[in-house]
């Protein structure tokens, strides 16, 4: 059962990754050529505080986005999962996903229309006499986080819903009937069951946020560059693939560390949980 997917991944994931990572230690030549001489020059360049700063800035924005999505998405997932009527649940889920079915770039652009100095929000605020001068709502970190949250919130709600929905309501009821306070019931009964959903949701939101390119470009006005933009710049604009590969490597090392953390959380939840 494992074989088809693993072979698939070996060919189309492991081999390509190997290619990219090997490239990180070669020299970049003119016109995007790769000179196959081993070098550590790319590593030295990547350790420039400016580039390390971009990496941390990206991690910070992506974490903020993930946290906000979790806080916004959890009540929504609970609400949807606790509807008795399947039809209502389906309808609500569909409503959550529907915005996702318009293009990501278009939806990101919608926030420019809303937030720019001459945009809908500033127009409304000025019209109501709340502000005299338009506010600078766009082209900053807050706008980038807003755009990421808007883009990826459904990716948090779906796995949360899938996890919460499979909890038998009777279990929860039983726990409450047996005198467990709601909060205690949540902690001891529900949490272990939904942690896999939370972790999945966080992964789904964090990764595309961290590697995002269009949102910082459009809503950050290019002033708030993230690691994805930096990598993209190396590959597409300047075509220095070896240096870009080195930045990718740095990103991957960081993500590996987070992967270890995530599996640790999962393992703990399984020890606490029912199927320990």
């Amino acid at each position: 059962m494992l074989a088809p997917a693993l072979v698939w991944w070996a060919i189309f994931l492991a081999l390509p990754m190997g290619l990219v990572l090997a490239t990180a230690f070669f020299k970049g030549g003119a016109y995007g050529a790769i000179i196959y001489e081993p070098t550590l020059r790319n590593l030295e360049r990547a350790l420039d505080p400016l580039y390390v700063g971009v990496l941390w800035h990206s991690v910070w924005l992506a974490m903020l986005t993930t946290a906000i999505c979790l806080v916004l998405g959890y009540p929504a997932a609970v609400y949807i999962a606790t509807r008795a009527s399947a039809r209502t649940r389906t309808l609500l889920l569909v409503l959550v996903i529907l915005p996702f079915w318009t293009n990501f770039l278009i939806r990101t652009y919608a926030w420019i229309v809303l937030l720019n100095r001459e945009g809908v929000v500033n127009g409304a605020l000025e019209g109501l006499g709340i502000v005299d001068e338009p506010l600078s709502l766009l082209y900053n970190d807050a706008a980038v986080v807003l755009g990421l949250v808007y883009g990826y919130l459904p990716l948090m709600i779906l796995p949360l819903y899938a996890a919460i929905e499979r909890i038998n309501p009777e279990v929860l009821e039983a726990a409450t009937d047996l005198g467990a306070r709601p909060l205690r019931a949540l902690r001891t009964v529900m949490l272990p069951l939904i942690i896999p959903g939370i972790v999945a949701g966080c992964v789904f939101v964090f990764v595309p946020s961290l590697g995002n390119i269009p949102v910082p470009e459009l809503l950050g006005g290019g002033r708030s560059e993230m690691i994805g933009n930096l990598i993209n710049r190396q590959f597409l604009t300047t075509r220095d693939w070896p240096f870009g590969s080195m930045l990718v490597l740095a990103l991957m090392v960081l993500l590996m560390a987070l992967l270890v953390l995530q599996s640790f959380v999962l393992r703990r939840s399984r020890q606490v949980g029912v199927d320990g």
């Binding site: 003119a30 700063g53 971009v54 300047t238 220095d240």
Partner: peptide
Amino acid sequence: LGEGQSAFTDAASKVKAG
């Protein structure tokens, strides 16, 4: 810019990153 391209683009990357 020939060989100097990478120095130039590194400078541009720094502006965007800074």
